[in-house]
Design a protein around this nucleic acid. Structure first.
Lengths: 344, 344
DNA sequence: ATCTCGACTGGAACCGGTTCCATCCATGCG
DNA sequence: CGCATGGATGGAACCGGTTCCAGTCGAGAT
């Protein structure tokens, strides 16, 4: 119902002219345009995106692959993506994919391979060669946000410098005079050195050895799920044992740090007097917890990813070839009350 | 590239037959089907959803309108929706809309009005009359999950019985002998009695007056944002004042409860000895906090919403007209260590 | 042996737009 | 004044499928 032919008839013009008038492409007399627009408004006409994309080959729809929606970082990124895409007139189709498995294959080989999305933004997922190849074959631009090897060939990458983040957080603790540190790392930090958690761990180790600590890998690293309960359990374990406790903890994410703070309190260990804790993310709740953290802006990263993908799609009149590509997104240390000078 | 015509040519059949073979509609000889499928596989053919939906009128795509993605309940619902839709072969297009404003209008009047989604699932948003009408006019089924008036006309509704939840939580505290209760309600609980927070508040008030408490509205209700910092600030305020403190708090959500627990600890008030706290949601972190709560299953609700919407779209061979419609989704009280008998 | 029926297949219309191409016409210029 | 130029418009092809309709053919019924 209410196809463009109806609009054309009502306005007394041809389909071709109606299409030009409404889409703004090509030459249409000002008065004709007005007539067509009036006709369209009168019968409540809205273009069929299907029909349009069938011929233009563009869907104005971006596929987003994301492993979690319920972790703060990912949720923020998703919101940033959505808002930005929406205001650019794009739809966002969500694919919640984590780990491997048939579901994941189905997403890449069927859902994303169809002509329903113009491009793909992958947030915090390591794309397999095969998956990338499948997308490239249908030549869909891919933007990867977070994790992975920066500057590698293949898809456009975007993200903070996680290794620098690990260094920065660790150096903050070292400068406060701490020498007994522990890193609560994310699962798989050692096994996947190029993952977010792997890079943060690497930065931690760098800073430690630069400070002359832990020459033979004695710097402690404990891996745990990057959630609040993950941090809680790990810290309970770590701090509950008798013997020399660490005086400072670098948590791989703010959520882990929250859990650690709570565990410390539970054990009667005062933060920051007995234990300094630093996280990374700039979580919404960091202020409430008084958490010192390395802030990043996930929603800003979402925005940046959209800007990049739209540029790859040739939107926005191509202001420049491809600017500042490669430069990591900004982070900054925010000192609150969870860290202090080490006890003598 | 690689249209169905190519497949047909390669298999030596007509487009019509190729289409029938691949979609499984109509009669095709077994051997022909095999040939067509082999041809499709050989050239890596995948149907164009645009072309298909242009003629069938169905997009196999559902629009989801959700106000937050970064609150636990909503994130879980979203995951549930996504997983279920995916396995039914549907895409999920996300519209992150909260409050009012031009963005919201744009979503309803443009994005959702186009022929790009078959139906709409609205999670925790109050649809305006006008918005509903716009969708109905393009006859798109609408399923509303959470909030609003149950059993009302218009869109299909689905959700837990929030009033009963409020009652249940409150009765738990009353049964433990508490008489000085406070309800940490969500923003707008009093102003919008049919919202989730409004109904929970109502249930609380019901239980209180049934117990003979607060005959003249003396039952305390404090409104705050339904987040952890929201609960933290409100509880700090509430518990920090001198004078007779409440001995029990019913928090409108687990996140609020977590904030309240933390505030109490900060003030040196022991939970549960000095203060009992009960929440609602069954948050992933509830166990870690030892929080007594009224559990619901947001991801299960997402699943249920998808089932309902697919039934409205006439999928699944219509097993029954419309079963158990109207029955609220299940909840249950889970007692942990944040509540105990009132001090004498 | 003829008729009927139903499985199987191909031709062609159609979904709703966009865009190429040709035509028409009013101007600007030599 | 003739002609090139370019804006405005319409006709028609096309994007890639699905589906209606008609036709063929073999098997079972009469």
């Amino acid at each position: 119902m209410t196809a463009i032919a109806d609009v054309a008839r009502l306005a007394g013009v041809s389909k071709a002219t109606a299409s030009r008038a409404l889409s703004g492409r090509g030459h249409v007399a000002e008065e004709t345009r007005r007539r067509v627009e009036a006709a369209a408004a009168e019968i409540g006409y809205i273009v069929s995106p299907d029909a349009a994309s069938l011929v233009t080959g563009r869907t104005k729809n971006i596929g987003v692959v994301i492993p979690f929606v319920n972790r703060w970082f990912f949720g923020e990124v998703l919101e940033g993506l959505e808002r930005t895409l929406l205001s650019a007139g794009y739809d966002l189709t969500l694919y919640n994919v984590d780990g491997a498995g048939p579901d994941r294959d189905r997403v890449f080989e069927f859902f994303l391979a169809r002509k329903r999305v113009d491009a793909v933004i992958a947030v915090g997922v390591d794309l397999a060669e095969r998956e990338l190849a499948a997308l490239e074959r249908r030549d869909k631009p891919v933007v990867v946000l977070g994790g992975g090897e920066a500057g590698a060939l293949g898809p456009a990458r975007l993200g903070i410098d996680d290794r620098a983040v690990g260094q920065l957080a660790t150096e903050h603790l070292l400068q406060l005079g701490h020498t007994r540190l522990v890193h609560l790392a994310g699962d798989g930090a050692a096994a996947r050195p190029l993952s977010v958690q792997g890079l943060r761990r690497h930065g931690y180790l760098d800073a430690m050895s630069a400070a002359g600590l832990a020459p033979r890998g004695r710097a402690e690293v404990v891996e745990t799920e990057m959630t609040m309960p993950g941090g809680y359990e790990a810290a309970l374990q770590l701090l509950g044992q008798p013997g020399r406790r660490p005086t400072a903890v670098f948590a791989a994410s703010d959520e882990v740090a929250f859990g650690a703070i709570r565990a410390a309190e539970r054990l009667g260990i005062s933060v920051p007097h007995d234990l300094s804790i630093v996280g990374v993310d700039g979580h919404e709740y960091a202020e409430m917890f008084g958490l010192t953290t390395v802030e990043q802006s996930p929603s800003g990263q979402g925005r940046a990813a959209v800007d990049l993908v739209l540029r790859l799609l040739g939107e926005g009149a191509e202001p420049d070839p491809l600017p500042d590509s490669g430069a990591p997104l900004p982070t900054r240390l925010v000192v609150r009350t969870s860290t202090m000078r080490a006890p003598l």
